[in-house]
Amino acid sequence: ETIMEVNLLKGPKGLGFSIAGGIGNQHIPGDNSIYITKIIEGGAAQKDGRLQIGDRLLAVNNTNLQDVRHEEAVASLKNTSDMVYLKVAKP
C-alpha cells in the first residue's frame, strides 16, 4: 500500500468522485475505511489523473477519515474550499 497526498482544485461539478464505506455502511465487510468507488467523467479527479477507483481515502484537509461514519466523510468533502488536500492509500 502506498500513501499519496493529492491537492485537487474543485471544478464546477465539485471534486468529481464518489465514495462508499464508513461505520454502518461498510464497502468491504469488516472494514470501516472510505473508498473511492467512482471517478466522474470530465470531473476534477479524472482531469488530475492520480485518484483511482479502489483508493482508500485517509484524510480530507485536516480531517482524519479512519473509523468515521459515511455521513461524516461526505460532510468533510462538502465543507471544503476550492483547493482540497486529500491523503489516499493506493492498493
Results as ranks from 00 to 15, higher is better:
E1D: 15
E1M: 09
I3Y: 06
I3V: 05
M4T: 08
E5K: 15
E5D: 14
E5S: 09
E5V: 12
V6D: 01
V6P: 01
L8C: 03
L8K: 00
L9K: 10
L9V: 13
L9F: 05
L9N: 09
K10R: 06
K10D: 08
K10G: 08
K10N: 03
K10A: 03
G11C: 13
P12D: 14
P12H: 05
K13N: 04
G14D: 06
L15T: 08
G16R: 01
F17A: 01
S18G: 09
S18K: 06
I19Q: 01
G21M: 02
G21K: 05
G22W: 01
G22K: 02
G22M: 02
I23H: 10
I23P: 05
G24R: 12
N25G: 12
Q26T: 14
Q26R: 09
Q26S: 13
Q26I: 06
H27I: 03
H27F: 06
I28K: 15
P29E: 09
P29S: 14
G30M: 11
G30A: 08
G30L: 08
G30D: 06
G30P: 05
D31T: 06
D31V: 05
D31H: 06
D31Q: 06
D31S: 09
N32M: 05
S33T: 13
S33Q: 06
S33H: 09
S33V: 03
S33M: 14
S33E: 07
I34R: 00
Y35K: 03
Y35L: 05
Y35A: 02
Y35P: 00
I36Y: 00
T37H: 09
T37I: 12
T37D: 09
T37L: 05
K38C: 15
K38H: 12
K38T: 13
K38Y: 06
K38F: 07
I39Y: 02
I39D: 01
I40P: 08
E41R: 13
E41Q: 15
E41H: 15
E41F: 09
E41V: 11
E41P: 13
G43R: 06
G43F: 04
G43H: 05
G43C: 10
A45T: 09
K47D: 13
D48C: 07
G49R: 05
G49E: 05
G49K: 05
R50T: 14
R50E: 09
L51Q: 00
L51A: 02
L51G: 00
L51S: 01
L51P: 02
L51D: 00
Q52H: 15
I53E: 10
I53M: 11
I53W: 06
G54D: 04
G54N: 10
G54A: 06
G54E: 05
G54I: 00
D55W: 14
R56N: 03
R56H: 06
R56F: 02
L58M: 15
L58R: 03
L58Q: 03
L58V: 14
L58K: 09
A59F: 09
V60A: 07
V60N: 01
N62E: 09
N62L: 09
N64R: 11
N64P: 15
L65W: 03
L65H: 01
L65K: 00
L65A: 02
L65D: 00
Q66K: 11
Q66V: 06
Q66R: 07
Q66L: 06
Q66W: 11
D67Y: 10
D67A: 07
V68W: 06
R69I: 08
H70Q: 08
H70Y: 14
H70I: 14
E71Q: 06
E71I: 11
E72F: 09
E72P: 03
A73C: 06
A73I: 05
A73Q: 01
A73Y: 02
V74C: 13
V74T: 09
A75F: 15
S76R: 08
S76E: 15
L77A: 01
N79D: 15
N79F: 09
N79R: 14
T80Q: 12
T80Y: 03
T80E: 08
S81L: 14
S81H: 04
S81A: 14
D82Y: 03
M83L: 09
M83G: 09
V84D: 02
V84T: 12
V84A: 12
L86Y: 00
L86G: 00
K87W: 02
K87A: 03
K87I: 02
V88Q: 00
K90N: 04
K90C: 08
K90H: 05
P91G: 10
P91D: 08
P91L: 04
